[in-house]
Nucleic acid binder design. Structure first.
Lengths: 153, 153
DNA sequence: CTAAATGCAAACGATTTGCAGCCCC
DNA sequence: GGGGCTGCAAATCGTTTGCATTTAG
């Protein structure tokens, strides 16, 4: 018989959990790391990743991807859809009414078991759509990338 | 005035294009690389990535993500949905009837401009659902991972 | 001829992981 | 006080990129 694992409550877990609660901005692990660091300056990025993994495993939060390679985390568990702005990159929670229900019957008939479905809508958000500010993807902030190649060949 | 770029037709482009045509298995760049290598053994993975980028840019194929970090490529341009099997990882093209249309009106009213939307359905596919074979994610094939850490510390 | 595309290998960015020490239960 | 968790740094994975060279047009 295998000894059951008893998860522990650590300050890191507590701070990370509360940092995401009610956050509808769909932060990345790095976003969360920077935020949590203000409270626990010695926390490591590895711990943030491990803790997020655990929260996902325990069903507290969702891990989502929006056509990028970086995972985003979402504390909202109720069914909702996402709007991804092609201009500024922001992801917004939205709710699209399905006038009647979508018809999964044919899929079920074909032998599929359906566990969940997600709807992602792409376009231009209210803010970017407003004339005036041309506004372009704000992601990728930080220092002006001094990182260049260092080889001399 | 800037000199226009005239793309060229190379054997690599031709072989990669035909390799993806009609392929509904949503192959990754690596999958395509292995396939193309049988015809052009000296092709590099870099060229495969660059060529796929070009095909996406030119609108010949689509690049998709399904909750993994690896991009998948899809030559089907018509509107269709995707079913992702949580057990074997396969991605299948499906079509879910929207009984009536989905109601984007409220989003448009709120100032969003809608360019596209995608529906992903997760669950267990016909094959995995059939009793008998317990079947588990076949992805990550190849040699038994001899790659271990090499540090001695 | 000449600019675009290739092969190669190094670089990158996001995430994971081995390990030794720390500290929650 | 023992096993889970942390910080650290190195490793891994998928993808990109600089450069010298080849090649399509």
């Amino acid at each position: 018989m295998e000894r059951a694992i008893r998860p522990r409550t650590t300050p890191q877990l507590t701070v990370i959990s509360t940092a995401i609660q009610g956050d509808h901005s769909h932060p990345s692990a790095e976003d969360i790391y920077l935020r949590v660091r203000k409270v626990l300056p010695r926390i490591s990025l590895g711990t943030v990743y491990r803790t997020l993994q655990r929260l996902v495993r325990e069903g507290t939060i969702q891990m989502l991807f929006f056509g990028e390679r970086t995972a985003r985390y979402d504390p909202t568990l109720e069914e909702h859809d996402h709007f991804i702005c092609q201009q500024c990159g922001r992801v917004e929670d939205v709710r699209v009414e399905r006038e009647q229900q979508m018809d999964f019957a044919s899929l079920v008939r074909a032998g599929f078991t359906i566990a969940a479905h997600s709807l992602a809508i792409r376009g231009v958000c209210q803010l970017c759509g407003r004339p005036g500010e041309p506004r372009r993807r704000p992601r990728r902030t930080g220092p002006p990338v001094p990182t260049k190649r260092e080889r001399t060949h």
